[in-house]
């Protein structure tokens, strides 16, 4: 493994950890969506790296385009749900989402 590979791997891991940390720490619905998006960006980086290591960049490119499309759809659905929750609750605090437990 050369320096570039190592650097990309470390960056991707840092991004994953950042995203997961944000996901656990925040109480805001929109920030949760952003955190998930950050994790997905790290995954995109990992896929690029996989293509680079193998010397076959074509297939990962197709993968990445597909991943981006899917990720946008997930973000749209999540944002739609967040807007509906905002209309019901008046704010975006996840601590008010406590009607289901047991």
């Amino acid at each position: 493994m050369n320096t570039l590979t190592m650097a990309m791997l470390v960056t991707a891991f840092l991004l994953i950890v950042t995203g997961l940390f944000m996901l656990v720490r925040t109480n805001n619905l929109i920030r949760i969506i952003i955190a998930v998006e950050i994790v997905m960006k790290a995954i995109t980086l990992l896929l690029i790296l996989a293509g680079y290591i193998n010397g076959s960049e074509l297939l990962p490119q197709a993968f990445i385009v597909t991943v981006i499309v899917i990720e946008v759809v997930v973000a749209v659905v999540a944002a739609g749900i967040a807007i509906r929750i905002y209309r019901h609750n008046g704010d975006l605090d996840i601590r008010k989402l406590n009607r289901l437990n047991g």
């Binding site: 509906r84 929750i85 609750n89 009607r99 289901l100």
Partner: peptide
């Protein structure tokens, strides 16, 4: 609101 909450957790 219950459906939205369950859905967001799953999402």
């Amino acid at each position: 609101i219950i459906g939205l909450e369950g859905s967001f957790k799953y999402l």
